[in-house]
Design a protein around this nucleic acid. Structure first.
Length: 382
DNA sequence: TCTGGGGTCCTAGGACCC
DNA sequence: TCTGGGGTCCTAGGACCC
């Protein structure tokens, strides 16, 4: 049976929320960005895009392009609030609603016809309701799968609605540049371009076996299917997180080994706070170090048993740090700490030492009094 | 004033085993 | 005194997404 998948993409979401909350900013170039020396643009309003500003661009560059722009730091709690409003609207049409980020979501409308009418009409209704009820503009795409729904909403941007019916898929895809396909990024696009392949129509001419010889068994097959609009990825409302991490890019590179170690402990505790808050245990600890020249290394270790113990995890992270040799003359630009192999804490194994409640206690104190209440030796300010 | 932060997935290569 | 051939597990790196 054919599926109907809808994709909603909020237009310039963070900037639009700022313009909603601050009416005097409407019609002006608004740029939500990291404001530090190494910040990047999260979202530029369409007025700012006219100056060439776009997401992921260094804020410094955006300031040069758009000196009169209004630069604001992100207010994620507020965006989350508005995202939830949008999600509530979407959920009223199907329980199969999958948020992709704060500003995007898929809805599986297959089989909702008896309840809500034909998917084409539902798409129109959603497209009208979201601006009416939230004050924010959105683009809506409807297609036979996630791939086509997303490409349809891309084509509808900004503020439009686009429906791609199954029989229209191949013609719709044909003229698109390959990098429009989900999963084809700059590297893959460049490799395809070298081979003279620029559009999806051209990609479709390449045999499966040739694609596989270029991009591996799996990668080749994915490209082959994408170019034909084939995608059976299901809409999944919630998936358990597979990893949790915190990372920081420092305004200036770090050189002092003690400071670097203290930062790794600090990040570890931030991660553990989240692990405990979500009632999880982790069995893998990983760190990430980026040097002045932007080269990045990672180290990870598998623990003998799952844990949410702040000291244990922090010590593991510091141990991983010791396995990283910082190249001559390089400072540390970014540090990250993460955990993976997560499991629910209700399956916690009996503690090795019955009276070791220290880890729990640290977590409880930090929860009650905030992360500064109890830092590990060496991670304080001094 | 070059390049965020939080994720997912895939692959290559070495260790190890039979 | 080069070279087996799987299979699996683990780690590090990289591509990609928003």
């Amino acid at each position: 049976m054919g599926r109907w998948i809808l994709h909603v993409d909020m237009d310039a979401f963070y900037a639009a929320v700022e313009q909603l909350d601050h009416p005097e900013l409407r019609g002006k170039p608004v740029i939500v960005a990291g404001l530090g020396p190494r910040g990047v643009v999260a979202t530029a309003s369409y007025e700012a895009r006219a100056f060439g500003v776009h997401s992921a661009m260094p804020t410094a560059q955006a300031r040069r392009l758009c000196p009169h722009g209004v630069f604001l730091p992100p207010r994620f709690e507020r965006y989350e609030e508005m995202a939830e409003k949008v999600r509530a609207i979407l959920r009223s049409y199907s329980p199969l609603m999958e948020p992709i980020s704060l500003d995007e979501a898929f809805v599986d409308l297959t089989g909702t016809e008896l309840l809500h009418g034909p998917p084409e009409r539902v798409a129109q209704e959603i497209h009208e309701r979201i601006p009416k009820e939230t004050g924010l503009s959105c683009s809506v795409g409807l297609g036979p799968n996630k791939l086509m729904a997303k490409l349809a909403s891309d084509a509808a941007k900004p503020g439009g609605l686009r429906i791609v019916r199954p029989e229209e898929v191949l013609d719709f895809l044909a003229p698109l540049p390959v990098e429009d396909l989900w999963g084809v990024g700059p590297k893959t696009a460049a490799r395809l371009r070298e081979k003279g392949i620029h559009t999806v129509a051209e990609l479709r001419e390449v045999s499966l076996s040739l694609l596989q010889s270029w991009f591996g068994r799996k990668g080749g097959e994915v490209l082959w299917r994408l170019s034909r609009g084939l995608d059976d990825d299901p809409v999944v409302p919630t998936r358990p997180a597979k990893s949790l991490s915190h990372e920081t890019t420092y305004p200036e590179d770090l050189f002092d080994p003690q400071e670097i170690e203290a930062e790794v402990r600090r990040l570890s505790l931030l991660v553990v706070d989240r692990v405990q808050a979500q009632g999880l245990l982790a069995q893998t600890v990983q760190i990430k170090v980026r040097f002045s020249d932007f080269t990045t290394v990672t180290r990870q270790t598998h623990l003998p048993e799952p844990t949410d113990h702040p000291l244990l995890i922090a010590e593991e992270a510091v141990g991983l740090l010791a396995r990283v040799s910082i190249p001559e003359g390089q400072g540390v630009r970014l540090l990250g700490v993460g955990v993976a192999e997560l499991s629910p804490a209700r399956f916690r194994a009996l503690p090795l030492f019955a009276d070791d409640r220290l880890g729990q206690t640290i977590g409880e104190i930090r929860k009650k009094y905030g992360p500064q209440a109890l830092d590990l030796a060496g991670s304080g300010q001094n």
